[in-house]
Simulated scan of single mutants.
Amino acid sequence: MERLGTGIGWRPEIADAVERMPGLDWVEAVAENVCPDHLPASLRRLRERGVTVVPHGVSLGLGGGERPDEGRLKALAERAQALGSPLVTEHIAFVRAGGPLTASDRIEAGHLLPVPRTRDALDVLCENIRIAQNALPVPLAVENIAALLAWPGEELTEGQFLYELADRTGVGLLIDVANLHTNHVNQGEDPAEALSELPLEALAYVHVAGGFERDGVW
């Protein structure tokens, strides 16, 4: 996978500040906030300077029980092509439930929800990622999320889950170290152990961010 260098998350609210940053190799833009037919002027200027733009999706729901929506995959592919991106990223999460195959109306969570770290859930996630990989024009990398809860009956540690996911699908890993810390605070998981279990050859890039603790929850 292409070496990206040093980057930052691009958002419209901080676009001017991002453009003024020296030594910037690439930026990450939320895919759903970018229209491929009308790219923001700031992103166009960055691209003209040789700054790489990576679309970062938040709505595929690759960890859900349904197969990835073809329309959402097409939209993500269009953004990658419009931006000339070397890869796209998404999350190891589900974001909706219910729908025609269930007894419930479809519900959009509006949040990234954790996938149970079980063998069955891993099988579903792997198949959904393979479908996404086949539909996208560039490689896919997926990010570990911050979880406020753990599912009962989990069979794998976070590191084991990520290792098997990458090993079985060839997907890249976007590792958010702040999310590993969050899971340490909220659930007592060992971030050093998770990092030691990761296949470094699958690493696409790393998120370094922050947060705060409130009432014992990060």
Rank of each mutant, 00 (worst) to 15 (best):
N33R: 13
P40S: 10
A29M: 03
E28Y: 02
V53Y: 01
L46W: 04
P55F: 03
R47N: 13
R47D: 12
V53W: 00
N33T: 13
H56P: 08
L39N: 05
V54L: 15
L46G: 11
R49Q: 14
V27A: 08
E48I: 02
P40A: 09
P55R: 07
R44N: 10
G50Y: 00
C35A: 14
T52A: 11
V51N: 11
C35K: 08
V30C: 10
E32N: 11
V34C: 02
C35S: 13
R45H: 13
V58P: 04
L46P: 08
P55D: 13
V54C: 07
G57K: 00
P36M: 07
V30Y: 09
V27E: 05
V27C: 06
R44I: 09
P40W: 01
V58C: 14
P40Q: 09
P55M: 08
R49S: 09
V51W: 02
P36L: 05
S42Y: 01
S42T: 10
A29Y: 01
V53N: 06
L39K: 03
V34G: 03
G50D: 05
R49A: 12
A31E: 13
E28T: 09
P55Y: 02
H38R: 15
V51D: 10
G57Q: 02
V34D: 07
V58K: 14
V30A: 15
H38V: 03
E32I: 05
L46F: 06
L43R: 01
P36R: 08
V54G: 09
V58G: 11
C35Q: 10
R49I: 04
H56M: 09
P40G: 06
P36S: 12
H38F: 02
P40H: 04
V30T: 15
T52M: 06
V27T: 11
H56Y: 07
D37A: 05
E48P: 01
R49H: 05
A29D: 10
V54T: 14
N33D: 12
A31P: 09
R45F: 03
R49P: 01
R45Q: 13
E28G: 08
T52G: 03
L43K: 02
R49L: 07
E28R: 07
A29N: 05
R44E: 13
T52Q: 10
G57Y: 00
R44M: 09
C35L: 04
C35R: 10
V30L: 13
E32S: 14
T52V: 14
A41W: 09
R47K: 15
H56G: 10
V30S: 14
E28F: 01
R45E: 13
R47A: 12
V53E: 06
L39W: 00
V27S: 06
V54A: 11
R45C: 10
T52W: 00
L46R: 11
L43M: 05
V27L: 04
H38G: 03
V58A: 13
R47G: 12
N33Y: 01
V54E: 11
